[in-house]
């Protein structure tokens, strides 16, 4: 069709975590208005018509908020644009004749399930270690009982905007989950509701993070650059501070 562009896709195929993967080439003619994932939908539709197995990739809301999609496109998680998820990337951002490499998020803690789909449940395990406020339903004070400054609340929101996609881990040369963990720790450390458990929370979450095989942070800040929600590395600094304070002030020896 006129106005369409031709691109050569090199897409990672891998049967499961235990087998070796490799790239498969696809030549496509695609509308520049098509989204990246819609282009993959079309490839899959053609494969299905031919009776071949489609490429396995994940996506759900396609509005950049559920955090399900996540492809490494030309070496960058969620592709070349900043502050968007893969589902918001459109083909007009690529040139006619371009070769595009598509890989899964790669990290020991995110084993490949199939093709471009990886297992990110490690992130939930970290949250289960302490990413909550221990209040049961009912029996809570009135919502306006504790005033919280607008700025503080806004800063907490900036951290809470994390969509849990794992791009921070995928982009970090150390596959570290510090940005993800720091976002949750920061949100709850900034708000008074999170204060009663802040010491236990940060220690437990960091402990589980380390156990799950993520690397350590070396402050390269790739995570911040690739985060679809622009979560700031000041949260990592806050996490470090929280951790340091908890370790030296708390009298609990458990962690």
């Amino acid at each position: 069709m006129s106005g369409n562009i031709n691109v050569l896709l090199k897409i990672w195929h891998q049967k499961n975590a235990n087998t070796k993967g490799g790239f498969v080439d696809y030549k496509v003619n695609v509308s520049p208005d098509s989204s990246f994932l819609e282009m993959l939908d079309e490839i899959n539709n053609d494969l299905e018509r031919k009776g071949e197995d489609p490429i396995v990739f994940e996506s759900d809301c396609r509005e950049g908020i559920c955090g399900t999609c996540g492809l490494v496109i030309n070496g960058e998680p969620h592709g070349p644009l900043r502050k968007i998820a893969t589902c918001q990337l459109h083909m007009r951002n690529f040139k006619d004749g371009e070769t595009i490499w598509v890989e899964p998020f790669r990290a020991k803690a995110f084993p490949v399930i199939k093709d471009l789909m990886v297992d990110r449940t490690a992130l939930d395990k970290i949250l289960q270690a302490g990413g909550y406020v221990s209040v049961n339903t009912g029996g809570v004070p009135d919502a306006n009982a504790i005033p919280i400054s607008k700025d503080l609340s806004s800063e907490a929101f900036d951290a809470a905007a994390c969509i849990g996609c794992g791009a921070c881990v995928a982009s970090c040369k150390n596959a570290s989950a510090m940005l993800f963990v720091s976002a949750k720790v920061s949100q709850l450390a900034l708000l008074p509701q999170g204060h009663p458990e802040r010491s236990k929370r940060v220690q437990a979450m960091v402990m589980v993070m380390d156990e799950l095989g993520f690397g350590s942070c070396t402050n390269t800040y790739a995570c911040e650059a690739e985060c679809p929600k622009g979560i700031s590395i000041t949260n990592i600094a806050r996490l470090n501070r929280e951790f340091f304070n908890a370790k030296f002030k708390s009298s609990v020896l458990e962690y």
Binding site: V72, N74, G75, K173, N174, A175, G215, T218, T220, Y221
Partner: peptide, 24 residues
């Protein structure tokens, strides 16, 4: 340890686009 946290590296490395030379 950090090398081990990513047993299989990316074929295309985007690290030049999101980090400084000094940090990496």
């Amino acid at each position: 340890e950090n090398k081990n946290a990513r047993p299989e590296n990316y074929t295309v490395k985007g690290i030049r686009k999101n980090t400084t030379l000094f940090s990496r």
